[in-house]
């Protein structure tokens, strides 16, 4: 058995509930750190930024699963749904920290959403992810049918693009890190153009 085959056997045994359980740990840990001084002297921004960064990293990981199977042979398709749902949860937490802890003033929240392009873009990314999160179950897949379901879930692409753009737009000065994220996202999206059109449904 090759290494990849062995790896796929092991990965195939990882149940989604295990992923969901592990995913609870980082936000709880960060919240604990924030409450006990472990996130520095400005814990609100730190928590907000950490959650946003984790969400973008998870989004990229989710997006990498198909290219990984097509070109490397590593099969994580069974875990993709869980990873997508966890990404959404992290984005929601990031938004919640911004709403409640960071801004916390209703009139300011609304003004920011309509007036600040980087926040508008971030909110749009979140909005695009809502139907994806709610249809990430077998019942929705059956009800919609694989074709409709697949076209709906193509919203992933604009959502991740807007997510990366949101990060690029908030940088002060010329900073490399957000551009690297954007580069990775664009590369993963470009790979889609080369993928065979017949796709498995997850």
């Amino acid at each position: 058995m090759t290494f990849v085959q062995k790896l796929n056997m092991t990965l195939g045994r990882v149940p989604p509930w295990l992923l969901y359980s592990v995913a609870v740990v980082p936000p709880v840990w960060l919240l604990w750190l924030g409450m006990t001084g472990g996130l520095g002297v400005e814990p609100i921004k730190e928590l907000e930024h950490k959650l946003g960064e984790l969400a973008l990293q998870l989004f990229i990981a989710t997006l990498a699963i198909r290219p990984l199977r097509e070109w490397v042979g590593i099969n994580l398709m069974k875990q993709r749904r869980a990873l997508g749902v966890i990404t959404f949860a992290y984005v929601a937490l990031h938004l919640l920290v911004w709403l409640v802890l960071d801004v916390g003033i209703l009139s300011e929240i609304w003004a920011d959403i309509v007036k600040r392009p980087y926040i508008t873009v971030g909110m749009a990314a979140f909005a695009l992810m809502i139907p994806l999160a709610f249809t990430s179950n077998n019942l929705s897949l059956r009800k919609l049918g694989p074709k409709k379901w697949r076209s709906l879930h193509k919203l992933t692409y604009p959502a991740v693009l807007l997510g990366a753009l949101h990060y690029v737009m908030l940088a002060k000065g010329f900073q490399l890190e957000p551009l690297i994220y954007m580069g990775v996202v664009l590369a993963l999206l470009a790979l889609r153009l080369k993928l065979p059109q017949k796709t498995a449904v997850a």
């Binding site: 300011e108 003004a111 392009p117």
Partner: peptide
């Protein structure tokens, strides 16, 4: 890119 109506004093913790 952001409002300047408010500010947050460093040192007030998570809340």
């Amino acid at each position: 890119r952001w409002s300047q109506k408010y500010e947050r004093r460093i040192g007030g913790g998570l809340f």
